[in-house]
């Protein structure tokens, strides 16, 4: 038994030393670093049509990669897309694997403690489900006791499980979820309504619907690492510019998404930036 105790003590030391190594160190300003490197590393989704996904040739395309490209152009550097998923995107940013994160992340107070989220918000979406029409779901409470698929790391999994009593079955990426949903392993997929709308446009989902009232309409945030003041200001200007020029609305149209109320409202609010009206 003492041998095990000794082993545990050693492991404790090891864990603590990891924690110490991970402590933040002073860094150079990220804009300077990026310009010197000549490449801006942006964390984007690769499985979230049409915001960030892979085209048939394997290249990452979509609304967010286009926005990222514009940031890189403005900085005068090349852009590199690093695919991230919900459960690792903030860690990637913290560890410096990416310089900037534009990855469909909902802006929430507890996330603001971990990364710096740029205001104004660039986009917004709510939560809904994708479900076969035959179940005829009408309200969120209809999901009680039934298996509902989700994405690991999405914040509404907890709410769907806790408040509406659904049994959440969460997978790593959307490809696994769509497979499981089609195989009947779950009755619905709880996800961002913006992504589901795009999915429903394809004929393979004609027997499915997005039947529930959208809840938790919440803004999305672009994030930079804690303490990157200059980059934070720079990004805030970029976003204001996008709203002012109607770039977001344009991209929505280009990628086949109906213009969202949020994007319209932001354009109305910031339009005077460009037109003075």
């Amino acid at each position: 038994m003492t041998r095990i105790l000794n082993a545990s003590a050693a492991a404790l030391l090891l864990a603590l030393s990891f924690a110490l190594v991970a402590a933040p160190v002073a860094r150079a300003d990220i804009i300077d670093v990026v310009k010197k490197r000549g490449v801006l590393k942006v964390g984007v989704k690769a499985d979230y049509k049409p915001y960030g996904f892979r085209d048939p040739s394997g290249k990452i395309v979509g609304i967010e990669p286009e926005l990222a490209k514009e940031v890189a152009d403005k900085l005068g550097v090349k852009v590199e897309f690093i695919p991230v998923v919900s459960s690792n995107r903030m860690q990637f940013l913290q560890q410096g694997k990416i310089d900037l994160m534009i990855a469909t992340m909902t802006d929430r107070p507890d996330r603001r403690k971990v990364v710096w989220i740029v205001t104004p918000n660039y986009y917004s979406s709510g939560t809904n489900i994708l479900a076969p029409k035959k179940f005829g779901f009408k309200k969120w409470e209809d999901l009680r006791g039934k298996p509902v698929c989700g994405i690991q790391g999405a914040f509404y999994n907890k709410k769907t499980g806790k408040e509406f009593g659904a049994k959440i079955v969460a997978f790593k990426g959307t490809a696994e979820v769509y497979n499981a949903l089609k195989a009947g392993r779950c009755v619905a997929f709880v996800y961002d309504d913006s992504a589901l709308v795009a999915q429903l446009q394809s004929p393979e989902w004609k027997d499915y619907e997005m039947p529930l009232p959208t809840i938790d309409d919440a803004p999305w945030g672009i994030a930079v690492r804690h303490g990157e003041k200059r980059f934070h200001h720079f990004m805030a200007d970029m976003i204001r510019g996008w709203h002012a020029s109607g770039r977001i609305l344009e991209l929505e149209k280009k990628w086949g998404v109906a213009n969202t109320p949020f994007a319209k409202a932001m354009h109305a609010e910031w339009r005077y930036f460009e037109t003075g009206k």
């Binding site: 082993a7 492991a11 860690q91 971990v114």
Partner: peptide
Amino acid sequence: NQIWSDNVNVPEMMIFLLFAYI
């Protein structure tokens, strides 16, 4: 994984996991 996604307490959960498996 679910808990650290909901609460952004990754280091705490990682350390807890290590001890639980030890």
